[in-house]
Amino acid sequence: MSDADLDATDPRTLPGFFDALADGELLGGVCADCGQVLLPPRPACYACGSRAVDVEPQSHDGEIYTYTAVHTPPPAFAADAPYTVAVVALADGGRLLGRVAADYADVAIGDPVELTVREPTAAEREVALDYETDWPVHVFEPR
């Protein structure tokens, strides 16, 4: 193993991943042995156990794989409810959960969406842990 020098600039850590996302780049881990896409990147592949994980930019385009609407939110998100959440199958093979900028009734499985990135709102910063304060938030926009 050669990760002893892993630090917060490495996109296989959360700070490194979110730094890139803040610049508009979605980075995924891609297993050099089996091809599994890992979102966010991490040091080991869950599919085959390999630690040969490359970091590569991922397409922002995808399709709704499954979705719902949150009517009973955690206290931190009470003002937003109901809001739509989906798992999106991205064009490069990974799957990612996130909010969808559309009403539940206007969403269906298979709908094309695009990942966008914004800064956290004041309310989101309020409930963030210290090290998360500046982490961006991704939102899927219908295309």
Binding site: L14, F17, F18, L39, P40, Y65, T66, Y67, T68, A69, V70, T72, P73, P74, A76, F77, D80, Y83, V85, A86, V87, L96, L97, G98, R99, I109, E124, E132, W135, V137
Partner: peptide, 24 residues
């Protein structure tokens, strides 16, 4: 925490994602 919690997901909505897919 990094992706799911920050998207505002809850226990019922997580399982709703499974249910929606299962019904599909």
């Amino acid at each position: 925490r990094a992706i799911e919690q920050r998207s505002g997901i809850t226990a019922p909505s997580q399982y709703a994602l499974l249910a929606q897919r299962y019904l599909h």
